[in-house]
């Protein structure tokens, strides 16, 4: 069969997740996550905290494809950036509250994901990555050329942050963080629901053995397109909040290195872990921010070096490695004789 395994994904589903319903860790971890989510803008500069959440959801959207469907998209900037522009245009043109603009941006991302997904899921592995990259580049050039609409190289400036006249959120990035975080949280919950649904079961089956899935009567390509469109919607949600947070959408959001960076963040956090994307984003965004503010120029060198180390030493990324350590510790304690 021509449908070999795509990206080499090594996810051990036989082990119960430490977030599974029966796990005693679950309430503790969820509580910890909530505390971090609420406290983050106290600890770090609020716009940076917002960036972490946006990139975290962006990475989760990539993991939905890479870790759970077995597809390495190298063109996710199309959905992140496409939505950033769409969100900006909607907010600027109609002055709607920003969550409406962001949802419009996400819808736009899903809309363009339908034809892109339709044309790319027939390919697997590196060919899939190249087709998605090609579409993302097309969008980049369109955005660069359509100056009247997108501002060309200057980008879309002065995107308003309208929120029902509540000035604290419209003006203060600290309070805006909580409004933006609510939208990101919705995205994270959707991703979690998708992974733990009957649909999620089917896409992991497609990832592990497409020929067998087809023999069971599952239309492998349609399921891949479905996962692709959902993933694009989540990337669009993240990109929309990002554009509102910064007040502008630039070509930087559509350039191919953005597609590369989000794959890096995903791998850093841990492929097939879902939550890893948030951790990876936390590391990369804070690192970039602190290096940039110290005037250091070789940011790419540092993140690249960290990436190499993580990939070589910790195959399951930061989240995956931590999870494995906790599991081993729990199993050790259980098997150790008492007294």
């Amino acid at each position: 069969m021509s449908e070999q395994m795509t990206a080499s994904v090594d996810v051990d589903l036989s082990q119960p997740s430490i977030l599974s319903r029966r796990s005693p860790w679950r309430p503790l971890l969820l509580l910890g996550g909530l505390v971090v989510l609420v406290m983050l803008p106290y600890w770090i500069y609020p716009p940076v905290a917002m960036d972490i959440l946006c990139w975290g959801l962006f990475a989760i959207s990539v993991d939905l494809l890479l870790g759970f469907t077995g597809l390495l998209s190298f063109g996710h900037a199309a959905f992140w950036g496409g939505s950033a522009y769409a969100t900006g245009l909607i907010a600027t043109t109609w002055g709607v509250p920003f969550p409406v603009a962001v949802l419009g941006g996400a819808a736009f991302a899903m809309l363009i994901a339908v034809p892109i997904g339709f044309l790319s899921v027939r390919r697997t592995g590196i060919y899939f990555a190249m087709v998605t990259l090609a579409f993302a580049q097309m969008l980049y050039f369109i955005a660069n050329q359509a100056r009247d609409l997108t501002g060309g190289e200057n980008g879309l400036q002065g995107i308003p942050r309208s929120f029902f006249g509540i000035e604290a959120i419209e003006q203060d990035s600290f309070y805006f963080y909580y409004a933006g975080a609510a939208l990101i949280l919705v995205g994270i919950i959707i991703a979690w629901r998708v992974v733990n649904s009957p649909f999620g079961r089917v896409i992991t089956a497609v990832r592990d053995n497409p020929a067998r899935a087809r023999a069971l009567g599952y239309d492998v390509e349609r399921y891949k397109i479905g996962a692709f469109v959902i993933s694009a919607g989540l990337a669009g949600l993240a990109g929309g909040v990002f554009a509102i947070s910064h007040g502008f959408a630039s070509l930087q959001e559509l350039v191919w290195t953005t597609s590369g960076k989000v794959v890096l963040v995903t791998v850093l956090g841990g492929i097939g872990t879902l939550w890893g994307g948030l951790v990876g984003a936390g590391v990369v965004v804070t690192l970039e921010d602190s290096l940039a503010s110290s005037g250091f120029e070789g940011i790419g060198m540092i993140t690249g070096a960290i990436f190499v180390v993580i990939v070589l030493l910790f195959r399951h990324g930061i989240w995956g490695t931590g999870r494995d350590l906790v599991r081993r510790w729990v199993i050790d304690r259980r098997s150790r004789p008492r007294g």
Binding site: R193, S197, P198, G200, L216, G217, Y218, G226
Partner: peptide, 17 residues
């Protein structure tokens, strides 16, 4: 997974597994 195939349940992404 095999039994769910003809029912179309596999398309339900919004329901718990």
């Amino acid at each position: 997974l095999a039994l769910a195939s003809p029912t179309g349940m596999g398309r339900q992404w919004w329901r718990p597994v």
